[in-house]
Nucleic acid binder design. Structure first.
Lengths: 347, 347
DNA sequence: CTGTTAGCGCCTTCAT
DNA sequence: ATGAAGGCGCTAACAG
């Protein structure tokens, strides 16, 4: 009961005393609230900086009282990736409620810009933060900006809208993912020359467009013996993807590589095996579902680039929380790694 | 000012009232503290469960008062991976102090079991949690168990000691990493038959041993045309690795693949180019340093499997904190992804 | 074995 | 423009 040399962390009160003001004033300065003389602001800020004072987040959280509400705006319809995000948010429920956070799922037609924009407008005022899987479109951009304007923290998820004023993007680097796919297709094809097919959902989807861009970059610069055919747009539907690819495989008998940018994997696989070309085409895709898993094990698919829905859900929540608290975003907090899955390292 | 239908989250007080006991008793039950009649325990637990009550972490944190102290026990000497972990902990310092957490670095000779064990024993009682890059050895195992016994939370980092009573392992799945390396070497070699060399630091290092195990699994089952040569142990030193590999390349002129399991990358690369075999050998390694980057760009190295020091540091801190608080570990909290880096997707 | 009580550090009215 | 005071939900003495 002597050794009090261990300096306990400073508190607001210490700063207040040292700056010769009251608790309330320090709090005002800390949060840039109005009603403090510039001179006082300076003095307090100086004291805070000099002591490198960090307010105790737990105390702040407790004192606020109110819970924080977040919304996840996701595509309606049966998308396994989105379902996993939702499932993971469920796993987090105890974690969330222990922090007095709530997250609600809002499903909408994210492929129709006006519907998506309308959904976003609906949310204004009701939530502290919104994570949205968005289409990059002027109407959506405007809706996002309105939310930001209203003080809601906005994070784009999976697919970015960089021209909007969203606070943050959580998801993989899609250009890097496309480049990775290109490198895999090129290297796994080996010395052979021939054509390469690309099946995407739509080039209007920014994530798809970016992946294709990266893929083409690598093809052009590293694999001159491979020529890339025009992109097929299968709208992420199996039937359409299969039909388009089947026709292409019929026309071009020298296709040696195939990049499936989005969903519709079943259709793509069917076209490939339907044409009997599965042994001669290197097939690289994206999602890792039970289907992909089977295709990899069968050797029909050669590699899949995957995101991790759990990581993305978690990162989105963390980033929204940090933004709501006014904390800086740590560089590693939201970096989503690109995973390559092959037959031999299936998780 | 009417709509009070929004059910505010329950508090200890609510549970106490509903169970007909006092705050203190609920708290005792919540933390399995002794001194409560079994019958009462049951009743309180039942009330907690029925309301799925979650104590507010922020309030708990605030009421505890004392800060938490963590230690990272890391290898001494210039290891870039470890330096990055340390750098990242520096980046987190504001985050840490806002939560009244402190983490201290303790460097020691992790390759000498008795020194490492002694270092660990030193820590007992001083820390709430310890993250350790450990050698899997009986003495170390005992030291870890003593720490656990003393109530310290222990997390193994990068390399596990599964037979100890450590609470958690944070790091990549090294067997999966080895399998991935095997799949890459096998696929990138293509149709050629030949031999494959492995250079490791030491098979006594558990992470290295596990990677080699995974690598051999895939080689044996998937690539019968490739035969794996006995493992070279370069002790993670450039000179020794170079010397051993140079001799091997001299003896076996039909080496078509090379797996570098640990460090010593410079030596391995030198041996390869010194023998003029760089164009004919598929070279897959692990760390991603500036050197690896250059080797990849030069095409001397074909792929590198990487961990992310920032992710690992962050995960270790989060897991230690969760353990110290008695929270469950979320499945995604500590899963470290394996990253594959090639020339075309260098970060 | 159980209850009472005084804070933890900050935020938020409400006065001045 | 600034200060005083109460309370957020929990923990930890201390009383009984």
């Amino acid at each position: 009961m002597a050794d009090e040399t261990v300096s306990a962390a400073l508190t607001l009160k210490d700063i207040a005393r040292e700056a010769g003001v009251s608790l309330a004033t320090v709090d005002r300065v800390l949060h840039n609230r109005p009603g403090v003389r510039p001179e006082t602001v300076r003095r307090v800020q100086e004291t805070i900086a000099r002591n490198s004072f960090q307010p105790h987040v737990a105390a702040a959280e407790l004192a606020r009282g109110r819970a924080r509400r977040f919304a996840f705006v996701m595509p309606s319809g049966p998308n396994p990736f989105m379902q996993q995000i939702e499932a993971y948010l469920g796993e987090m429920s105890a974690w969330l409620s222990a922090r007095r956070l709530s997250v609600e799922m809002v499903t909408t037609d994210v492929f129709d810009p006006s519907v998506l924009a309308a959904s976003l407008e609906t949310l204004s005022g009701d939530y502290d933060g919104v994570a949205v899987v968005a289409l990059d479109h002027p109407g959506v951009r405007a809706a996002i900006n309105d939310l930001v304007e209203a003080g809601t923290k906005v994070v784009t998820l999976v697919s970015d809208v960089p021209s909007s004023r969203r606070h943050h993007y959580v998801g993989i680097d899609n250009i890097a993912a496309g480049r990775t796919a290109g490198a895999l297709v090129g290297r796994l094809v080996g010395q052979k020359a021939g054509k390469v097919a690309i099946v995407a959902g739509s080039q209007g989807l920014r994530d798809h467009a970016e992946r294709i861009f990266g893929f083409n970059q690598v093809m052009a610069s590293e694999f001159p013996d491979l020529s890339v055919l025009p992109v097929l747009e299968g709208r992420d539907e199996d039937a359409r993807s299969e039909q388009l690819l089947a026709r292409l495989l019929g026309t071009h008998t020298d296709i040696v590589g195939l990049y499936n940018v989005g969903a519709g994997t079943q259709g793509v696989a069917s076209a490939l095996s339907g044409a009997g070309r599965e042994k001669h085409v290197v097939f690289v895709g994206h999602d890792v579902t039970a289907l992909t898993r089977r295709l990899l094990l069968q050797g029909l698919m050669d590699a899949a680039i995957s995101q991790n829905p759990g990581h993305e859900a978690r990162a989105a929540v963390r980033v929204l929380l940090a933004l709501a608290r006014g904390e800086p975003i740590l560089s590693e907090q939201d970096k989503i790694r690109i995973d390559i899955v092959m037959r031999d390292n299936l998780p």
